[in-house]
């Protein structure tokens, strides 16, 4: 079976991609993912905040060491001088991982930056390219809590980041986004105009939880589940024939069927971390075998021939298409549960 796929202009041996996550923290981890059979590996995300936090932490630590020094005759310090070596910053560590991991595997390694502002990303993106990243995924996770910020401002912020990064590097850039834009299709097209080589749909918005015992908000991260695939799949289907760039699907992959569903909707590649975390790195083999079996069973000769079969046709009115689906769904629900819409 021919599973070959092109993503961001990169030829891949198959459309399954390990998305940014905890399995790609080390060279061995990345190698394990590639050995498991995936078509490409997106490295874990380096967070803008992480880089900044580390600098601030170093400063706080310096203060903590000094704060209580030399104030009492019996204790002129409270910590040993451990090392005179500068602390290895997370950024340096990340670059070194890109360099080593890209040499260790025979599939493309995609670096991932997570942030919400321009910051020093431009400079760092160039360093990632030099270190050997095949492409760059910009994960723009932005929650506009500032009520004075209008919708267009939010979009412009994304566009500016993409444009600035694209101007400075020559490797392809994919943008991982949240779905919460008033006209996502138009916005996605503007990103393409700004230079994006692909979009990754969607970023999961990690809503925090509440600890009632401590009366505190607690950040919560949970693995995705298949029902979460519906939102991205809907948008992939709607945009497949309207966006002239690569589309990657992410969230909610658990079985080979989930992979197939995404491909039918029109995804160029399907990403997963949750399934690999749950079942181990080698689980990609199970997913790929399942895909292979399905294609064979259905009589397809390649993954390309099945891709986008269920996308909204290029000539259809996409809004009307969706609305029709919506109405049908409600009718179905009514017959099962009674009227849901008043």
């Amino acid at each position: 079976m021919n599973l070959r796929t092109t993503y961001l202009g990169l030829p891949l041996r198959n459309p399954l991609v390990a998305s940014a996550g905890p399995l790609s923290q080390t060279v061995d981890g990345v190698k394990g993912l590639a050995d498991g059979g995936v078509g490409a590996v997106v490295l874990y995300s380096l967070f803008e905040e992480q880089v900044r936090a580390q600098l601030e932490q170093a400063e706080r630590d310096a203060l903590l060491e000094e704060e209580h020094a030399d104030l009492f005759a019996e204790a002129t310090s409270y910590f040993p001088s451990v090392s005179a070596e500068p602390v290895e910053t997370v950024a340096v560590k990340y670059l070194s991982l890109v360099e080593k991991a890209s040499r260790a595997i025979d599939v493309p390694l995609i670096a991932s930056l997570n942030g919400s502002s321009l910051g020093s990303w431009v400079q760092f993106a160039r360093q990632l390219e030099e270190a050997g990243a095949a492409a760059l995924e910009l994960n723009i996770y932005f929650m506009p809590g500032d009520t004075s910020l209008a919708g267009p401002d939010v979009e412009q912020r994304h566009i500016d980041i993409v444009a600035a990064v694209k101007q400075n590097i020559s490797i392809p850039v994919a943008v991982k986004l949240a779905p919460y834009f008033s006209s996502f299709g138009s916005f996605a097209l503007r990103l393409v105009e700004a230079g994006a080589d692909g979009v990754v749909l969607f970023n999961r918005f990690l809503q925090p939880d509440v600890d009632v015992e401590r009366v505190e908000v607690v950040p919560g991260v949970e693995l995705s589940n298949p029902s979460e695939a519906r939102l991205p799949r809907t948008w992939i289907a709607a945009l497949r024939h309207r966006l002239p760039v690569s589309i990657a699907a992410t969230s909610g992959v658990e079985t080979a069927d989930d992979v197939v569903a995404y491909l039918l909707a029109g995804a160029d590649v399907v990403m997963t971390t949750s399934a690999l975390v749950r079942h181990g790195r080698d689980y990609s083999r199970v997913l790929l075998d399942g895909l292979d079996t399905w294609l064979t069973r259905k009589g397809f000769a390649s993954v390309d021939s099945a891709r986008g079969l269920l996308a909204v046709p290029a000539d259809a009115d996409a809004a009307g298409y969706q609305r029709a689906g919506y109405v049908t769904a409600l009718e179905k629900a009514k017959s099962r549960y009674g009227s849901l819409v008043g």
Binding site: A58, E59, D61, A62, P86, V87, T89
Partner: peptide
């Protein structure tokens, strides 16, 4: 003194 604590601390 502050080299290992980072450039920010030195600059301040």
């Amino acid at each position: 003194t502050y080299a290992r604590k980072g450039a920010d601390v030195v600059a301040k």
